[in-house]
Each structure stands twice: as C-alpha cells, then as structure tokens.
Amino acid sequence: MTQAHSPGNVRVKPGADLNGAMLGKLLNRPGTLFLVGSQWKELPDGVLEPLVDGGDVILTGSANPPVEKVARMGVSEACHLLCSEGSLGGEYGQVVFVGIPHHIATGMLSKLKHYSDATAISLDRGFQPDANLAFPNLSREDWEEELGEAVERRSA
C-alpha cells in the first residue's frame, strides 16, 4: 500500500492505487463529476479536455481552463452540496478531483468518504488515502505517463 502524504492518520479503509489504464476505463462511466481546481495548469498540455469530456465540470478556486463548466464554486461548497440530499447529493456516482491543492483535497475526500456514496477518484500526483482510488506517489514523468495512458484508453 502506498504511504499517505500525511502519515499517521489511522485509516480503516484507505483508498487503493490507481493507474492510467484503470482511470481511462472509469472515466467512461456516466454520472461523473469533475472538480477542477486552481492547480489544473500542472496537468500536461492537452490532457484536461479529453479527460473531462462527457462529464460535468465544476470549477473551483480560481481555475479557468478552456472546458465547459456547469458551475463555479468553492471546493468546500461543492463537496458540502455533494453530501447534502436534495442538492448535489446522489446526483453523481463518481467524483474526480483534478488540480485541487493537496491538503484541501484531503479534507474534502474525507468528507465524501464519510458522508457521500459517490466514488471519489483523485488525479493528484501525491497519494490521497481518503479517495477510493488515487495514484500512488508518482514522479512527474510517471504521473504524466499515467494520465496520457488514461486519455488514450478513453479515446480507444
């Protein structure tokens, strides 16, 4: 099991490791919401658009990528609504975190884990144990490769 970036927390059910091939397949599922955050520019060029294609996008923080969004709100607000029945709660089977700064993402993923039924996927380069699926701590090159593979799988 990959070591958490913030070690020491006793987690009963830590998330599992993700890889590009798996991600490519998962992204084809309907009912996917992408939370795209202020660090989206760290993704390699040309990856974001095909990754989020077909899903709903909420932009958080100051993110302003060239993708169509359904809303802009804080990641705190979005995750609170995702855990609230009658709002976004129950609307999405899968929530994907893209470019959300690691520490706030950790808190939000924990919130989703405890208060929502959606599957949470983190595309962060650092492992997020509270996500159902997250990349293990990857070097930048390996991370870019896995994302590239996910995009390829999607278009295949």
Binding site: M108, K111, H114
Partner: peptide, 23 residues
C-alpha cells in the same frame, strides 16, 4: 450555517474501549 465536517481520522482512540471504527 451548516457544520461541514471534514474528519481527519476514521477512528477514535481517546479511551481504552477504542480504537473504534467510525466508517
């Protein structure tokens, strides 16, 4: 204003009943 909880731990280990799984 809703209290929006963001737990940092899945367990409580503050007493010797525990650690208790809260997931």
């Amino acid at each position: 204003y809703d209290s929006s909880y963001e737990p940092t731990r899945d367990v409580c280990d503050l007493c010797t009943f525990g650690p208790c799984d809260l997931t």
